[in-house]
Computed example of a mutant assay.
Amino acid sequence: MIQLQNRLPAVALATAFALSLAACAAFDPELRSDSPKDPTLTGVPVPAAAETQAVGTARSDAADDPEVWADPRDPSRAVIFGTDKKAGLYVYGLDGEVRAFLPEGPLNNVDLRPGFLVGEREQVLVAASHRTRGGALLFLMDPATLEVKTWGLASAPVSEPYGLCMGRRGEDTLVVVVGQAGDVRQLRIAAEQGRPTWVEEQAFAVGSQAEGCVIDDATGALYVGEEAKGIWRYSIDPAKGGARTLLEPAPGPRLTPDVEGLTLLRDSGKTYLIASSQGDNAFAVWRVAGEAGEAADYQGRFSVAAAGDVDAVTGTDGVAALGGPVGPYAEGLIVVQDDADTEGATGGVVRELQNFKLVDWRAVKSALEIDPAAP
């Protein structure tokens, strides 16, 4: 068979290869692009500031969710985590170059919390939903060396681990795992004799496929994105028993399904919720407030436009943000997944490459006329 293929003309080989890819994409939903057929950017355009190297898995739906950490004592020391949901966890520098790769298999969403005590040492606890091992895979990053190592698995019996977010409640560190079917488990994570331990605190059902989630440590609000329905607000207090409020419905003027990544950014004492509206290549922003985050003041929608050598963001999945100085981003950084990193590939059935784009929070504030000093 190999000899026969070697005798085929180059055009015939290319045609056969294209047909085989098309056939594969027709049967494997993991190869199909999440990018809308229409690549129009529907939000107010904001220029991309930089981008990361693409994840290693090509021609597949691979890059998914980012997270950002910056040293509060030296914000120039910052890293970006990004998942390859076929292969493992990437660690990038702010220059977009790969610092490390941990080949831990299919990881979907990632989050972190600094100041996690293991023995008497503070570590950055990083967690990622593991799609086949049934829970949250835990990593530790040494804030002094930025070295990342795998720590262990906290099991969470959900349908298939998709979404994941972390939070703090007093001295407790929490991990929430969201299953593909919308089943949710909340775990309390600790370290005993250098190894991870966990206790399940609450479980509830969102109703249908869900993924993105984020916890506001200050208010105890847990925001979960039900992909075809909108954004729900829950509580990390188990006594609330899964009670919820619909913050924003989808489809609607602000969100076009799928509702994907959710993140929070704090600026000048104000908290902003950012959601990726995958269906129309945009990100919606609300200012959230109140003891349980019950008030939500809509700020507008933006899209990440091409700038310089960096292409526009389409079909986005995960989104992460960190307020305050992060390297050259003096007031905050937003990192988003780009479904098609090759210019002109938007809307294709099979993508060539996927990566993460960096956006300056100052550019978003300027574009949407957001004033954190306003009452």
Rank of each mutant, 00 (worst) to 15 (best):
D38C: 05
D74Y: 05
F101K: 08
S35V: 07
V126R: 00
P66N: 09
D28S: 12
K86S: 14
A100N: 12
K149M: 05
V118T: 12
G105L: 09
P29D: 15
R59M: 08
K85Y: 11
R131V: 13
C24Q: 14
C24A: 15
A70K: 01
A62Q: 02
F116P: 01
F27M: 13
T52F: 11
D28A: 12
R133Q: 14
E120K: 09
V118N: 10
V46F: 09
R73D: 15
A156D: 02
W69M: 03
T52N: 10
R121E: 08
S76H: 13
L125E: 08
A70M: 01
A23Q: 12
V68D: 06
L137S: 03
H130E: 11
L102D: 08
P143L: 03
H130G: 04
E67S: 15
L140S: 04
A70F: 05
S76K: 15
S159R: 11
A87I: 00
V44P: 02
V68I: 15
T145E: 04
G134A: 10
P47H: 09
V124L: 13
I80N: 01
P29V: 11
F139E: 02
S60K: 06
A50I: 00
P143F: 07
G56H: 04
E67H: 10
S155W: 04
E30W: 09
A26T: 07
L89M: 12
Q123E: 12
L21K: 06
D65G: 07
P36Q: 10
E67A: 14
P36M: 08
M141E: 02
R99M: 11
A58R: 14
A22V: 02
Q53I: 03
E147P: 00
V55D: 05
T145F: 10
G96C: 12
F81M: 14
P106V: 09
P106C: 08
I80A: 06
S129G: 11
P103M: 11
T83M: 02
E67K: 01
A54F: 08
V46G: 06
D84E: 10
A144T: 12
L107M: 08
E51C: 05
T132F: 07
A156C: 07
A100I: 08
C24H: 04
G96A: 11
D84S: 04
G43A: 10
E122A: 14
D84W: 06
G115M: 06
P39R: 00
F81C: 01
G88K: 00
P75C: 08
H130S: 11
G56E: 07
T145R: 09
E97L: 09
P29W: 09
A26G: 13
A22N: 13
T132K: 15
A136P: 00
T150R: 15
P29H: 13
D28W: 12
V98I: 14
